[in-house]
Simulated assay, not measured.
Amino acid sequence: MAEVQLRHIDKRWGDFVGVKDFDLTIPDKEFLVLLGPSGCGKSTTMRMIAGLEDATSGDILIGGKVVNDLEPKDRDVAMVFQSYALYPNMTVYENIRFPLKVRHIDPATHDEKVMRAAEMVELTDFLHRRPADLSGGQRQRVALARAIVREPNVFLMDEPLSNLDAKLRVSTRAQIKNLSHELQITTIYVTHDQIEAMTLADRVVVMSAGNVQQVGTPTEIYNYPANTFVASFIGSPAMNLVKGTISNGVFTAENMTIRGLDTALSGDITLGFRAEDAEVNPVGSAPDVTEISGIKANVFSIELLGEATMITLKIGDALVAVKAGKDYSTEIGHVFSTNIPASICHLFDASTGLRLNNGSQSE
């Protein structure tokens, strides 16, 4: 059993708070992703679990045992770093084998364990090479194999893909996803890349400035962001957020009118919607904004994505993205209109940023 419990963990350096009241239980075999921008406290949280940082207050439990006072080597966790941390003078085989030697595992079992770990990450043809002779993706797979060979209770992965190019990130991400399914070991993964979080995680913890903003499955966080920070951080592109006013169920902003919203709300508000949810009107069809529930504005920019065309509009100070079909054709400066049903809108408090509606307006 490798359940991990973080009980009201704080980390402070003098007056600076790195992590504030982090309280979460990570069930056995769960793949949990800590997601947020640089400096949000996600790596600090992981380092406290690993024993590389001491918690200022709170308890860390692994498998039901408090580990605050245990050395990193005694916590039965394996960590994969962003920098690979391989020994340049050792072959791939010896790099993978090294944790077994350090932990005094029976040498008679080493070869079988190394070969099994190498096979899992498709490195059996590279065992004789040294790290300098490998690509970035291969080096990261050596680091993964070195963690696997230990057979730990918990995997800790700190931005393991950030040094790889885009193509290698995709393939190595698939490798990690497959390994997670095969090994069934509790995994805590740190990243600033929301695509990694969405594709890998059973649950995601979104963090900002040391605080947990939301915990949920990727689907929950994408469909029902708890606040404007989460809404603006999750999704590619991020959710559109437009400040305006609402009265009698009608939201208004520059070149934008949305009808059919909650009639109980009034005053300043932030309205959100996703680029793929808006309904694009045909080219040349641009009814007056006062007659529709949507946007009518001039095209600010156009991006051809292959499978779609991304149209950007400027609504007040906000840039708003709308995803049109791949064959949609227009030009910068031309009039563009889109329908935005109330059912796809997310409403947030203008001052606190907190979510006001529980789900789509149609629910």
Results as ranks from 00 to 15, higher is better:
A2V: 00
L6C: 08
D10H: 14
D10W: 11
R12V: 10
G14M: 08
G14T: 06
F31P: 03
L32D: 07
V33I: 13
P37Q: 06
G41K: 07
M48C: 04
A50R: 10
A50T: 10
A55W: 13
S57L: 04
S57Q: 07
L61Q: 05
G63I: 06
N68M: 01
D69W: 00
P72F: 08
D74A: 12
D74W: 02
D76W: 04
V77S: 11
S83A: 13
Y84C: 05
N89L: 08
T91R: 09
Y93N: 07
I96C: 01
D106P: 02
E112C: 05
A117K: 03
E119G: 12
E122R: 15
E122M: 14
T124R: 14
T124G: 03
R129A: 03
L134E: 09
G137D: 11
G137F: 06
Q138M: 11
L144A: 07
V149S: 02
P152W: 01
N153C: 00
L156I: 06
M157F: 12
E159R: 03
N163Q: 11
R169Q: 02
V170P: 02
V170C: 00
K177H: 09
E182S: 13
Q184M: 05
Y189V: 01
Q194D: 03
E196Q: 04
R203V: 02
V206I: 04
N211V: 14
T217H: 03
A226N: 10
V230Y: 04
F233Y: 09
G235C: 11
V250I: 13
N255M: 01
M256D: 01
T257Q: 15
R259M: 04
L261W: 02
L265S: 02
S266L: 05
S266V: 02
D268T: 08
I269H: 04
G272A: 08
R274A: 05
E276N: 13
V283G: 11
S293M: 04
I302L: 13
L305I: 13
E307L: 15
A308K: 14
I311N: 01
L313W: 07
K314D: 10
A318F: 12
K323I: 10
S337T: 14
N339G: 00
I344Q: 12
L347E: 07
D349H: 02
A350G: 01
S351N: 03
R355Y: 06
N358F: 09
N358A: 14
S360P: 14
Q361I: 13
